[in-house]
Amino acid sequence: MSDFEEFQVTIPSDTAEGRAVQERIIGLLEAREYSMRDVFGVRLALEEALVNAIKHGNQMADDKVVKIECSVSTKHVRVVIEDEGEGFDISAVPDPTEDENLEKPGGRGIMLMRSFMTHVEYNDRGNILILEKRTDEPEEDDD
């Protein structure tokens, strides 16, 4: 197996299609023996990102697609997810951990992505998301 692998895929606005891409990427990480903790975090981030792109970005529209680019090596995975929605203002998403927001839905997906990935970046419009995870960093130990 080669160390580096990349692919591009375009899917319709269907969460089952999104989950299939998620499984493909997870398979690449497992083949490279990423730790269970890293696989857990990347899977969770991909789930949140793809559901956001399909549901909130494309509004599940039949005529809109999601483009996904993925590159994986033994220590680094990078996924770019582009939807055809109007985008959103990332700074306008409320902090879900504030006491007054704790019982409200929303904002948690982005927070989980940021927490589990090394780097999370949206373009200005908010319709392209870059997710990166490096595995060669020392683990933070909060316990």
């Binding site: 559901v51 948690r108 989980l112």
Partner: peptide, 12 residues
């Protein structure tokens, strides 16, 4: 083994 923020919303 896994749950998403959508599941958290239901629990809330």
């Amino acid at each position: 083994e896994y749950l998403s923020s959508a599941a958290l919303g239901k629990l809330i």
